[in-house]
Amino acid sequence: MDTVQISLLVLLAVVFVVYRQMRTRQTEGMGNLITAAAMVVLGLASGGLFDTGHLALSVTLFAVEVVAAVALGVWRARTVRVWLDGSGVAWSKATGWTLLAWLASMATRVALYFAGAALGLTAATSSVLLFLGLTIGIQSYLVAGRGRALTGSRRRPDTFVG
């Protein structure tokens, strides 16, 4: 995939995920997890995650990106409102804090991109897909876990619920 295609895919995916998070929806839905998994697979399959000319530095920056993606996903998950309705179904809805955390996530990703460029690393746009896939996946998994905790369910849902 070229840079323009990846940029459009990333933009569409982020808009889709944030839009879905801002709507009231059941926490057991797996739509965002599927989107996240697809982004991770595409990011890995696209290759070029490491600059072979500066391998140690590239791997270090990659590790920082993974830690940041996970930490930001955890932070955003904590900003999502999760509750039970009268029939015992868990629901979630993002808050204004979630949008602020998304902005911080994007700013962090841009800062990491420019840090790599300043260090002389060849930037791989596929790493953006991997970063977003990880951060969306972590957030979705944790929000679903909070919903399961409220309902007392220990198992993952067997069916896809948008």
Rank of each mutant, 00 (worst) to 15 (best):
F16C: 08
F50A: 15
M39P: 08
T35G: 05
T122Y: 02
R146Q: 13
A77Q: 05
R76I: 04
Q5G: 13
S126Q: 11
I6W: 00
V80Q: 01
L119K: 02
S126W: 05
G43P: 11
S58D: 12
V128R: 04
S153W: 01
Y19Q: 14
L42S: 11
M106R: 00
M106S: 10
E28G: 02
S127I: 05
M1I: 09
R76Q: 06
V41C: 05
T95R: 10
I136E: 00
G116A: 05
V4K: 13
T24H: 05
V15A: 15
R81N: 07
I6L: 14
A144P: 01
K93M: 09
T52C: 06
L132C: 05
S58A: 09
T98K: 00
S105G: 14
R155Q: 10
A118V: 04
R81W: 01
V40F: 03
G147S: 04
G88V: 06
T3D: 09
L132A: 04
L8A: 12
V17P: 06
G145M: 14
T151H: 02
A56S: 15
Y113V: 14
S58R: 07
L12C: 14
V110P: 00
W97I: 11
S140N: 07
V59N: 10
A37F: 11
F62K: 10
G120V: 00
R78L: 06
R78P: 00
T27F: 00
N32M: 12
V74I: 13
A115M: 06
G120N: 00
T27Q: 03
A104Y: 01
R20F: 08
Y19A: 13
A37T: 14
V10A: 14
S153T: 09
T135E: 04
L33Y: 07
V67L: 15
V14N: 12
D2F: 00
V66A: 10
W102D: 09
R20P: 08
F62S: 15
I136L: 08
G96I: 06
R78D: 03
L61V: 13
